[in-house]
Write a protein that binds this DNA or RNA. Structure first.
Length: 800
RNA sequence: GCCUCUAUGGCGGAACUGGUAGACGCGCUGGACUCAAAAUCCAGUGAUAGCAAUAUCAUGUCGGUUCGAUUCCGACUGGAGGCACCA
């Protein structure tokens, strides 16, 4: 039995031939839908991190099936997008072929692990049968006015030569290649995601995501509550509206700052005497990426607008207006009231430009820095004396609303989703531009808009999609009027295909709809979705937004797509550093499978530690799991002919069933494996074990090490094949010990242990405790104040 | 700066609702088997003192609540993640 590879292959073939992992769409059994994020089929192949999450969900799925559920556990490929395209360009092959090759590798790697995916439902986002429906859904966005084209400064990656969403340019660098992002003006398709900001926050209440995931989402959406306030301009009949979270400090507003792109500048160009200087500053601001603007936060810069000023609506003071790049056009109104006494940035600016600093909240030392703490309102007329922020804010808002110069306002950092990419390898946006009819969606029957089969797909320098160069693709007729028209040549971001893929798994071969109503209703909400923390914001928000939109269109039955979301911890290299090609410390799962076997690798990765935490790889640890499996095999030589569980270990067996069952449910895979190790240790202690002992062990261990458990079960003819067997049950009564050893403490320190019976009264327990020599020694000559007996747990004798 | 999480032997990690801290595994030490090694098996393994029984200390630091705290509360320190000139 030394050749694990052969055994593994044998059972993988058996499972496939028997179709035991195929989910049914019309089953009487209760359903359960497990999903693990599908991978980018990059050239690097499978990572041991994939093995961790796939195995974890495989353990859950296999157990759930044995417990009588109709389990959907699918797998597919997130095949569009930059990684695949970069790989193709580098290796001079068509992305389509590159992806095909990579998928082949990935799939065989995954299959060698024995993960119980339902391969009948395999999908790939770059498959026309799939992206037809991605395009169709985009058209629904378009038709409902949720998709629009806007000229805007976008984050541009000069290396990937494509526009990036804010989500993809985190930290001012392209998340794909790490190149510094610059600003570039471009017409882009946008999805109105910002409209869903509040729904995306509220919807979290209907999920059971891990707290850290919820927090990440809420932070990303970035809700803030405050007020909009209108400031009259003093020499033109117009207002400048600002957004503030601190309307209570309005009396302290001593100047205004607007973003360099603020429209008021061009509007009153003629009134602005130093417009040259303004333009110069605008150019200066534009030359920096958004991130640089934010990053260079030490020294404030700006230009005072000479020609227009504003009036503080409560104090009546005339306030100078500045432009400065610390105010962003894309948040709030692009204008702020500056309260230098109580805001550090405004304070810095005021110091630099020598502006008034008016304190309106008592406390702190305004001569040194802005005071952002709480205090009693001063210099604020009707607010004077108010001693807390909340009341002051409310009073001010009431005042503003009564005078119609302001109103309560909530703002979100979440912006609309930039949905255009100037790349080849993505879903073509299925729209046509007609000079007469404008933007018109491609007719349903003409979907999918196929990517042309060409050899030129490298990005261009001018910011146009490579598709723009392909005449046969671009030139078409208007679906509306039939005249000549041009196709949109931008493609969708690679987040598009992953924003709805779990729905396709429900009905993957449907030619008429993205999924049938029946399938959508039957599978409903995804019960359990696993993915990396790196997707806790972007992917998860896009997917929830997309689903909420489909829900509002009446196309899916649930507003929230995912019930429970869990994130696995990363696996680091030995020594606790990240695995990377450049460091040469990447562990290839294939090597591990061939040296130790898939079962050992799976067991090790489940035993390695807390599933949600990152953990360092240890090949010695993996070898330990292999040793454990070898022992499981060897114990088969100790089988006897007895029936039932061996009486001396019966209680332990029931306890182990309970422990393993509960631990798997709670994703405490490490302690589940440890419970099995304890049971095996016991098997080795006793002279022989019964077939039932062995069989129940193999059933419990099978989700972790399915191949060897099937093999041993079959070799010793212990019963039905495990994949078709029921999960073992335990008898609660038999998990309780009649006799127990408990500790006896004197003043909280353990001095002895005593054996007690569950039926012993407190008096008897106390008597036993006091009879212990070491206990006597420690209470000798002291006064016993009280004796605390906690049944079945502990005795504590308090002495003085 | 704000938000969330986290801290236990040489290492990964256990510990039910506050009740014998260190399960299980790795590593290490000694032994058996072997000509030898590997594999396997047996014993030991938080620190200090002791032949031992046992005692003292010990769950990031300092306090608090409690008969009893890894667990609850407060403050601090370190680490991870999210957000960030966001008004």
């Amino acid at each position: 039995m030394s050749n694990y590879t052969e055994i593994e292959k044998k059972w993988q073939n058996y499972w496939e031939d028997e179709g035991v992992f195929h989910a049914s769409n019309d089953s009487k059994l209760p359903k359960y839908y497990y999903l693990v994020e599908f991978p980018y089929p990059s050239g690097a192949g499978l990572h041991v991190g994939h093995v961790r999450s796939y195995t974890a969900l495989d353990v859950l799925s296999r157990k759930k099936r044995m417990q009588g559920y109709n389990v959907l556990f699918p797998m597919g490929w997130d095949a569009f997008g930059n990684p695949a395209e970069q790989y193709a360009i580098k290796h001079h092959i068509h992305p389509k072929d590159a992806v095909k090759e990579n998928i082949k590798t990935f799939k065989s790697q995954i299959q060698s692990l024995g993960i119980s995916f339902d391969w009948n439902r395999e999908i790939s986002t770059c498959d026309p049968e799939y992206y037809k429906w991605t395009q169709w859904q985009f058209i629904q966005f378009f038709k409902s006015g949720m998709a629009y084209k806007a000229k805007k400064d976008i984050n541009w990656c000069p290396s990937c030569k494509t526009g990036l969403s804010n989500e993809d340019s985190t930290g001012g660098v392209c998340v794909r290649c790490g190149t510094k992002v610059v600003q570039k003006e471009k017409e882009q398709w946008m999805l109105k995601m910002s409209e869903y900001a509040q729904d995306l926050i509220d919807g979290l209440d209907d999920t059971i995501f891990e707290e850290r995931i919820k927090t990440a989402q809420v932070n990303w959406i970035g809700r803030s509550d405050g007020a909009e306030v209108k400031f009259k301009l003093d020499n033109v009949d117009d207002n400048l509206t600002v957004y503030t979270t601190r309307p209570d400090t309005l009396f302290g507003a001593s100047f205004m700052v607007i973003a360099p792109e603020h429209p008021i500048l061009s509007k009153y160009k003629d009134k602005i005497r130093n417009f040259d200087e303004v333009v110069k500053y605008q150019d200066f601001a534009k030359s920096k990426s958004e991130f640089e603007r934010v990053e260079m936060n030490k020294e404030k810069t700006g230009v005072k607008i000479d020609g227009i000023s504003a009036i503080n609506p409560v104090s009546g003071k005339v306030l100078p207006i500045f432009i400065s790049d610390y105010v962003m056009m894309n948040y709030g109104t692009g204008a702020i009231m500056a309260v230098p006494a109580h805001d550090q940035r405004d304070y810095d600016f005021a110091k630099k430009f020598n502006l008034d600093i008016v304190q309106v909240i008592s406390g702190g030392d305004i001569s040194k820095e802005a005071y952002t703490g709480d205090g009693v309102m001063i210099n604020s007329e009707f607010l004077n004396g108010t001693d807390n922020k909340k009341d002051a804010i409310n009073k001010m808002i009431e005042f503003l609303e009564s005078k119609d110069i302001g109103k309560r306002m909530t703002n979100y950092r979440l912006q609309d989703w930039i949905f255009s990419r100037q790349r080849f390898w993505g879903e073509p946006i299925p729209l046509v531009y007609c000079d007469e009819c404008g933007w018109v969606p491609v007719k349903d029957e003409d979907l999918p808009v196929l990517l042309p089969d060409v050899t030129e797909y490298e990005p261009t320098d001018d910011g146009e999609s490579p598709l723009a160069k392909i005449e046969s693709f671009v030139n078409t007729t208007c679906p509306h009027c039939g005249k000549t028209a041009r196709r949109e040549t931008d493609t969708m971001p690679n987040w598009a295909g992953s924003s709805w893929y779990w729905l396709r798994y429900m009905d993957p071969h449907n030619d008429n709809e993205f999924a049938s109503k029946d399938a959508l209703n039957y599978w409903g909400k995804l019960d359990f979705y696993n993915g990396g923390m790196e997707h806790a914001t972007r992917h998860l928000l896009y997917a929830r937004f997309w689903n909420q939109f489909l829900y509002n269109q009446g196309l899916v039955p649930n507003k929230e797509p995912f019930n429970r979301r869990v994130a696995h911890g990363m696996i680091l290299a030995e020594g606790g550093v990240k695995m990377s090609k450049s460091k040469g410390n990447v562990i290839n799962p294939d090597d591990m499978v061939s040296s130790y076997g898939a079962d050992a690798l799976r067991t090790y990765e489940m035993f390695i530690g807390d599933y949600e935490k990152e953990v360092a790889w240890s090949e010695q640890g993996l070898n330990g799991s292999k040793r454990f499996i070898d022992r499981v095999v060897r114990i088969g030589e100790k089988l006897n002919d007895n029936n039932g569980y061996t009486s001396s270990i019966e209680s332990l067996i029931h306890k182990t069933i309970k422990k393993v069952t509960e631990d798997i449910d709670n994703m405490k895979f490490n302690t589940a494996v440890s419970a099995l190790m304890i049971l095996l240790n016991k098997f080795e202690e006793i002279s022989s074990i019964s077939k039932d002992d062995y069989r129940v062990f193999l059933l419990l261990f099978s989700p972790f090490a399915p191949h060897i458990c099937e093999e041993l079960n079959s070799k010793y003819d212990l019963g039905e094949v495990i994949c078709k067997s029921n999960w073992p049950l335990y008898d609660e009564e038999k998990t309780v010990d009649n006799e127990k050893e408990i500790a006896v403490q004197v003043n909280g320190k353990v001095r002895a242990t005593i054996k007690i019976n569950v039926n012993d009264s407190n008096d008897i327990i106390e008597e036993k405790a006091l009879a212990e020599d070491n206990v006597k020694k420690h209470i000798e000559g002291k006064e016993v104040i009280k004796v605390i007996v906690i049944k079945g747990k502990i005795v504590n004798i308090v002495v003085k």
